[in-house]
Design a binder for these strands. Structure first.
Lengths: 150, 150
DNA sequence: AATGAATGATTTGCTGTCAAAACATTGTAA
DNA sequence: TTACAATGTTTTGACAGCAAATCATTCATT
């Protein structure tokens, strides 16, 4: 549903673009969560484990920076993953402020088993757009993001 | 940070497009939340009040459908708005299953005071893109969303 | 009138999310 | 060596978000 606001054209355009961005994001995430591979993990758990799988063990603070989550949120997500035996916390010996997060064997097996289907779902979702369209979309989103973060 | 996954080109492209979409959405929302007008309302509270402001009183279930939130989430968001005196629940006289959500005078004044700056922020954010680019972005996002929801 | 299906809202249980405060540890300057 | 700043993590408090179950109400059928 587009905005019902009636103002200047650039205001209506900005509000509508925001709505479309928000709706698209919701749709993509809902579709990903419907994949059978996402029955066992929440989006944040998946992102955390994916980062550990591809980058190796990471300091908790560093992990949070990579997947753009706050320190306190990382504590909660890792608490739940640890509780399920999917990761292990390990205090750094050189700097005891730091906790290194490792995937356990169980965690590694799980992410290895769900990642292919997740990737397949992702390809399916974005195949609605041609290669050129995906590139254009990515470029515009980057431009938008860069402008905000400067 | 793009994906570190090394797979087929269409897989890498899909994952990267997803990351860009996710990052852009996070950036836009963080920027909106930094606006002084968003000190008093959360994103969902704002969306709820904006919908009520532009569309008039709505049945709770209908409101949830419009802003794409679940029934249980609507209960929580409206609980908090009601607690703050910004909305009022009113049982429908014709169908007592339904609760009509109204903005209170206080709520109306608040949304009227924050909406202009919110809109201005939105325009500022999206002015990173030209009109043509915003239109292209919107079209691609719509195409993506439509494909998923069919 | 009675019964079951459908609908709207709440509750329960769980996870996520963040800012601010608090705590523990390390680094730096005096 | 001491004091303070900086850093990493947790805790606290609050709100968001959803699925499933539950409750109340309405609708349709018999």
């Amino acid at each position: 549903m587009p905005t019902h606001y009636k103002g200047k054209p650039e205001e209506v355009q900005a509000l509508n673009t925001y709505i479309k961005l928000s709706r698209a994001m919701d749709s993509v995430q809902a579709c990903l969560l419907n994949g059978s591979s996402m029955k066992e993990l929440t989006i944040s758990q998946f992102g955390t484990m994916e980062a550990l799988y591809h980058l190796g063990p990471l300091c908790q603070n560093e992990l949070g920076s990579k997947i753009l989550k706050s320190n306190s949120n990382m504590t909660t997500v890792i608490d739940n993953l640890e509780k399920r035996g999917l990761v292990r916390r390990e205090r750094d010996t050189n700097d005891r402020r730091m906790i290194i997060i490792n995937l356990t064997d169980t965690g590694k097996q799980l992410i290895e088993s769900v990642f292919p289907e997740h990737t397949k779902n992702m390809v399916k979702i974005f195949s609605a757009l041609s290669n050129e369209e995906q590139k254009t979309l990515g470029d515009l989103l980057r431009k938008l993001g860069k402008s905000i973060n400067n």
